[in-house]
């Protein structure tokens, strides 16, 4: 094979690539060369600059608004799925995930886990574009048997939403901290959570890997900045196990909106 500097037909292959006349195999070959050689990438870019002005003849065409919603949902973006100027976006109803009342209702149920799975399965599947989403849910129950918080994990996006079932009375100058306890292991700090407002926590992959039916969640009362030792120092006020809901909510655009009253914190 000739070198990229060669000025014969090999060099022309990059022009042919840009023009679009090569078959699939030849295109793949050029793309490999571009990855491997900066000189090739530059040659291709030069040809793009020469030929692409022809694209000015192509009339622009506004895509339908649902294309953006699909992109937004497939990428799991958490900014509002609105693009100014795209028709139906403004009238879009907030999803169940964004609905605070839904989370409170979820927290108050007796068989919370079953309800969570059922509801997630019943969500309308409008656009089956996203890969099957996996959710895990946990009812974190207080010592008096009442549900204190519900935690729902969006595994695909590495996020957990923790919602208090009702405003929790926490000792002044203290704050609730969430812990993950893998079976037979020490608690791992997940993050500080709200006593009266929902909290979205980002979960790093190592933490995500430890979530599962054999692990438990617990809430302890700690100083506002979190436990100074990395282990629970205050009383444990609630505990719960974790359940999986595979394939739930397939295709539903699950959008996490950061509400003003909702804090996003990073684990660890």
């Amino acid at each position: 094979m000739n070198t990229p500097i060669d000025d014969g037909n090999t060099h022309l292959r990059y022009a042919e690539y840009v023009l679009g006349v090569l078959d699939a195999d030849a295109r793949a070959e050029v793309e490999r060369e571009m990855m491997a050689s900066d000189a090739v990438a530059t040659t291709v870019a030069l040809w793009q600059r020469r030929l692409f002005p022809l694209g000015e003849e192509i009339a622009s065409s506004e895509p339908p608004a649902y294309v953006w919603h699909r992109i937004h949902s497939q990428l799991g973006l958490d900014t509002p799925s609105r693009v100014e100027g795209s028709g139906d976006a403004a009238t879009r109803k907030p999803g169940l995930w964004e609905n605070l009342r839904f989370w409170h209702w979820l927290g108050l149920g007796t068989s919370v886990l079953a309800a969570a799975c059922l509801v997630l399965l019943l969500l309308p599947s409008r656009q089956p574009v996203a890969p099957a989403a996996v959710y895990m849910a946990s009812a974190i129950t207080q010592t008096d048997g009442q549900v204190g918080w519900t935690a729902t994990v969006d595994v695909g996006h590495g996020r957990m939403v923790v919602v208090p079932a009702k405003p929790q009375a926490i000792a002044a100058g203290h704050a609730p901290e969430l812990w993950l306890i893998p079976a037979g292991q020490k608690p791992i700090a997940v993050g500080m959570i709200g006593g009266s407002a929902p909290t979205t926590l980002k979960l790093d992959p190592t933490l995500l890997a430890k979530l599962g039916p054999s692990a438990a969640l617990a809430v302890s009362v700690e100083p506002p900045g979190g436990s100074p030792t990395g282990q629970p120092t205050g009383p444990v006020i609630a505990k719960g196990s974790i359940g999986t809901s595979p394939d739930a909510a397939r295709g539903q655009p699950v959008t996490l909106l950061n509400r003003p009253d909702e804090k996003v914190r990073s684990s660890s």
Partner: peptide, 8 residues
């Protein structure tokens, strides 16, 4: 820029 890309 999506309308230009969609045109293409």
């Amino acid at each position: 820029s999506s309308s230009r890309l969609f045109g293409v």
